[in-house]
Computed example of a mutant assay.
Amino acid sequence: MPFKTLKTKRAPLTLEELAASIERRKAEWRAREETVIDMAELGGELAARREAGGIPQLPRNAGTDRTPSKQALLDEIAKLGAKW
């Protein structure tokens, strides 16, 4: 038989179980929304981990193989005063 019908063996949810499941998911999302990452603190932690792990400071790409469109984009960024 090439095709098989898949059937679930679970019993249907009651309204109470469904409501409880929805409330659990809402609580999970609220907990995620309340999580705020302080980027300055994270940067400090990462720098400390790199130093402790002996990871060297790698040089940035020299940028000698830029396409004309990429170079134009970087020139416009530089005009705005940002450093890329």
Rank of each mutant, 00 (worst) to 15 (best):
residue 23 E to M: 07
residue 49 R to D: 10
residue 39 M to V: 05
residue 25 R to W: 12
residue 32 R to K: 11
residue 48 A to C: 04
residue 23 E to V: 08
residue 25 R to N: 13
residue 34 E to K: 13
residue 34 E to Y: 00
residue 36 V to S: 04
residue 34 E to I: 04
residue 30 R to M: 08
residue 46 L to G: 02
residue 40 A to I: 04
residue 23 E to I: 05
residue 49 R to H: 09
residue 41 E to R: 07
residue 42 L to C: 03
residue 49 R to N: 07
residue 36 V to L: 05
residue 44 G to I: 02
residue 26 K to D: 08
residue 24 R to F: 06
residue 39 M to A: 05
residue 43 G to Y: 01
residue 48 A to R: 15
residue 36 V to D: 00
residue 48 A to Y: 07
residue 36 V to M: 01
residue 45 E to P: 01
residue 30 R to W: 05
residue 27 A to C: 05
residue 41 E to P: 01
residue 40 A to M: 04
residue 41 E to V: 10
residue 25 R to Y: 11
residue 33 E to R: 07
residue 17 E to C: 05
residue 40 A to F: 03
residue 18 L to A: 15
residue 32 R to V: 08
residue 35 T to D: 09
residue 45 E to M: 13
residue 20 A to V: 12
residue 20 A to C: 07
residue 31 A to D: 08
residue 29 W to G: 01
residue 41 E to F: 00
residue 39 M to P: 04
residue 22 I to G: 06
residue 21 S to R: 14
residue 44 G to K: 14
residue 38 D to S: 07
residue 45 E to V: 06
residue 29 W to M: 05
residue 26 K to I: 13
residue 46 L to Y: 09
residue 32 R to W: 06
residue 37 I to G: 00
residue 30 R to V: 11
residue 35 T to W: 03
residue 33 E to G: 02
residue 41 E to C: 00
residue 17 E to I: 06
residue 46 L to M: 15
residue 49 R to C: 04
residue 41 E to A: 13
residue 23 E to G: 06
residue 47 A to F: 04
residue 43 G to F: 01
residue 41 E to M: 02
residue 31 A to S: 11
residue 26 K to T: 09
residue 37 I to D: 01
residue 34 E to F: 04
residue 35 T to I: 10
residue 33 E to S: 06
residue 36 V to E: 00
residue 46 L to V: 15
residue 30 R to G: 00
residue 39 M to Q: 02
residue 29 W to I: 11
residue 38 D to H: 04
residue 24 R to G: 08
residue 31 A to Q: 12
residue 35 T to V: 15
residue 36 V to G: 00
residue 35 T to P: 00
residue 45 E to S: 02
residue 46 L to F: 13
residue 44 G to H: 06
residue 35 T to G: 01
residue 26 K to L: 10
residue 42 L to I: 03
residue 21 S to L: 14
residue 28 E to T: 09
residue 49 R to L: 15
residue 25 R to Q: 13
residue 48 A to K: 15
residue 19 A to D: 15
residue 30 R to E: 11
residue 45 E to Y: 07
residue 45 E to A: 03
residue 27 A to Y: 05
residue 22 I to T: 13
residue 22 I to Y: 11
residue 18 L to P: 00
residue 29 W to D: 01
residue 39 M to R: 02
residue 48 A to T: 08
residue 32 R to S: 08
residue 48 A to P: 05
residue 25 R to S: 06
residue 34 E to V: 02
residue 31 A to T: 09
residue 47 A to N: 12
residue 20 A to S: 14
residue 25 R to D: 14
residue 33 E to Y: 07
residue 24 R to M: 10
residue 18 L to H: 13
residue 49 R to Q: 13
residue 27 A to S: 09
residue 48 A to E: 12
residue 29 W to K: 10
residue 42 L to Y: 12
residue 30 R to P: 00
residue 44 G to A: 09
residue 17 E to Q: 15
residue 21 S to C: 02
residue 34 E to S: 09
residue 49 R to A: 15
residue 46 L to P: 04
residue 28 E to A: 11
residue 39 M to F: 03
residue 22 I to E: 14
residue 17 E to P: 07
residue 39 M to L: 10
residue 22 I to D: 13
residue 28 E to W: 09
residue 21 S to P: 00
residue 18 L to F: 11
residue 47 A to S: 14
residue 41 E to D: 14
residue 22 I to C: 08
residue 20 A to M: 09
